[in-house]
Amino acid sequence: MSGAYLSDVLFLLGFAVAVVTIPLVTLAAFGWLRPHYPEALKAEAYESGMPQASIPRRPFHMAYYNFALVFIVFEVETLLLFAVAPILRDAGWLGLAEVGAFVALVALSLFYAWRKGALVWR
């Protein structure tokens, strides 16, 4: 079991190394073929022709924070479902009821977040 696990991880490691290396090598290889004419104006941020109107390092919309929080809660709950999903077929009505109770709890938390206004973009 652990041997198979180790070989899976090693395979994916090799896979990832190849997928990361190829674009880096391509980028480097064409480095001495592509033109390079640095210019002050070219290095300016895009702003339809005028100097940059405002600094991008600034506070942004609060709503992102709300959604990020709710996301973490639901993502963890979804992951837990993946753990039980494969054995659910043979778990009988009792097992199904237990997972059903969990899903009801998830639905309840969604309802709570909804009522508290966490899902409104404002």
Binding site: G3, L6, S7, L10, F11, L12, L13, G14, F15, A16, V17, A18, V19, I22, P23
Partner: peptide, 21 residues
């Protein structure tokens, strides 16, 4: 079915290159 681990890593490299292509 049991292959040596360095070989598995090499297979990963190869398939990664294939996937990117």
């Amino acid at each position: 079915m049991e292959v040596s681990l360095p070989l598995t890593f090499a297979a990963g490299l190869l398939w990664g290159a294939v996937a990117f292509t």
